[in-house]
Structures are given as C-alpha cells and as structure tokens.
C-alpha cells in the first residue's frame, strides 16, 4: 500500500518528466533524420557501442557505425602453419644492456597488455639483482632465453611447445594439456601458467588463435615469451624492444650479425658489440645455448647517483 501511495505522489512529476523526455527525444530524432537525409554518408549513428583495442592497446568504446566489418578468413589454419614453420633465413637474438636498465618497466607493461596477461603473469620480468651485501644492485630484465637446446621442448609430451627454424621457442595452447612439465624443466623460470581465466577473456572470445602471439590465452595452459613473432613477421622489432625508453634492448638477426637498438634505432655489429662489452649468456654451463645475450652492468653513467648507490 505504502508503495502505491508513494507511486501516486510521484506519478505526476514522473509523467511530466517522461513527456518532456519524449519531446526531446522526438526532436532529436527528427533533427537527426533531417540531417542524415541531407548527408549522403550512409553511416548513421546507431547508438550501439562496440569495444575495440586501439593501437596503444587501450580499450575504447566506439559507435558501431564507425566500425567496418571485414571478411574474416574462415579457416585460420594458416596461422598454425606459418606459426610452426617460422621465418626462412633468419635467426633472432636479443641483447640486454644491463648498464642502461633503470627499471622503467615499460617493456613489461607493453608485453602484458599485448599478450593478455594478468599483472602476476610474466613473459618478461625485470628483477632486482644483488649478489651480496658488498656489491651494488642492478636491474635485470629476464625473457625466455629461446635456447638452441631447449629443455622445455624436450619434456613436452604432446609437442605443444616447439622450436622453429628462426630460433624462436613457441607454445601452442590448442595442444597444451597443462601438465606444466615445461615450467619445471625451464632453468630460467621463463614460463607462467594460466591458473585463472586470462585477462579480458571476453574481449578476445571471437579472435582466432594466433600461435605467434599466443593470444587469446586459454585457462589451464602454459604461456611464454614469443619474441613477438607476430611483429617479426611484419619486419618490426618486438613490443618490449621498441617500448624501452632507456636503450636497453638490441634485437637482430644472428645470420646477418647485426642488432638494432629499439630506442635509438642505432644498428651495430652483434659480434663486435658482444666482444667490446664482454657479453655473456645466462647459465652457460647447462648447455642450453640461449639466444639472449647480456652486457654486464658496468659504467652505469646514465643512472643517477642516488639510484645506483641504493641497496
């Protein structure tokens, strides 16, 4: 009863309001139809919003009319085929200059947004290293090492993870059974597991699976660094390499003996760079033969004094 009373009280005002709203809506509709009849442009604002990812990997809402649907190739087998084969005549290498890393973490942010990763999942992690109390600390970005003798691939029981001719170790989450043998086998702890539904899973629901990007991610499968194989196919540098503001990363083709800095675009001879800076690889004694090289954290002249003395 009480409800009804209050309803009656409000009735007038609400009715009035609705009437006004109707008028406004009507005039807007009429105005719009006049406008659109003047305009030859076929696209009309439908009011239906569609969520899209823009080039900065941000989620934006746009009107449905401004999105042109493209014919999607029904068979996405080619993604599997090209992803398994790799790029002919190339073998990729990453050089990480530890003397320049200032923990800006732009590489991590970009990687996680591109590969649909939760904050605790890493294809690439920047670690604070401090060997003992007498030595200075430094930051070390750690990717998958894309070993030439990969222990992770050896243990996979279903051939889900594999090594391509261009040196890249990938994982196929359509084959992965989630046994996590590879996580246990990797001496660099480079892999992570999708324990939960991946980030933005509903956004990627209709996206065909690209093995070179490992997107969309799938719950219950292992995920890992792909060296941004999708970028490399387009002749671009990996996401992390081009996101770094501090010139930490060099990336290039070992066969061509050249690497390019992702920040400055400076291209140098790989063997000379490694020789002059005493480049090294992680855990050489395991015989994994990584494709990722490190330059020691010496001469950290570009790091502010207070930062380098911090312990």
């Amino acid at each position: 009863m009480e409800n009804k009373n209050s309803e009656n009280k409000k009735k007038n005002s609400r009715r009035e309001f609705l009437q006004k709203l109707g008028l406004v809506g009507m005039s807007a509709f009429v105005g719009q139809s006049i406008l659109s009849s003047c305009n030859n442009d076929k696209a009309t604002v439908t009011g239906k919003k569609i969520k899209v990812l823009n080039q900065n990997h941000q989620l934006v809402e746009v009107d449905a009319s401004s999105v042109t649907p493209i014919a999607i190739d029904e068979t996405t087998d080619y993604l599997q085929k090209q992803g398994r084969e790799g790029l002919e005549g190339k073998k990729f290498a990453l050089v990480v200059d530890l003397s320049k890393c200032k923990n800006a973490r732009k590489c991590m942010d970009t990687c996680q947004s591109v590969h649909q990763l939760r904050p605790e999942q890493h294809h690439l992690n920047v670690l604070l290293m401090k060997d003992n109390e007498h030595t200075a600390s430094y930051y070390m970005p750690k990717h998958c090492q894309h070993c030439d003798n990969p222990p992770c691939v050896k243990v996979c029981p279903v051939e889900a993870t594999f090594k391509r001719k261009d040196g890249i170790v990938l994982i196929d989450n359509e084959r992965c059974i989630g046994c996590r043998f590879c996580i246990a086998a990797c001496p660099y702890s480079a892999r992570s597991f999708n324990w939960y539904e991946p980030k933005d899973a509903e956004l990627y629901a209709d996206v065909p699976y690209d093995i070179e990007k490992n997107v969309p991610q799938r719950k219950g499968t292992v995920t890992k660094c792909t060296f941004s194989a999708d970028c490399l196919r387009e002749g671009k540098l990996p996401y992390c390499v081009s996101a770094c503001p501090n010139s930490v990363y060099y990336f290039g083709n070992i066969y061509e003996d050249s690497v390019t800095n992702g920040t400055s675009g400076e291209t140098v001879v790989l063997s000379k760079l490694l020789a002059e800076n005493a480049g090294y690889r992680l855990m050489e004694d395991l015989g994994t033969a990584p494709s990722v090289y490190y330059l020691p954290p010496k001469d950290r002249t570009l790091i502010p004094v207070d930062e380098s003395s911090k312990s």
Partner: peptide, 8 residues
C-alpha cells in the same frame, strides 16, 4: 641496410 634498421 640491415634487418631492423640502418647501420651507420
């Protein structure tokens, strides 16, 4: 010209 850029 190199794979990912120009070498000076």
């Amino acid at each position: 010209k190199r794979e990912f850029g120009l070498m000076r």
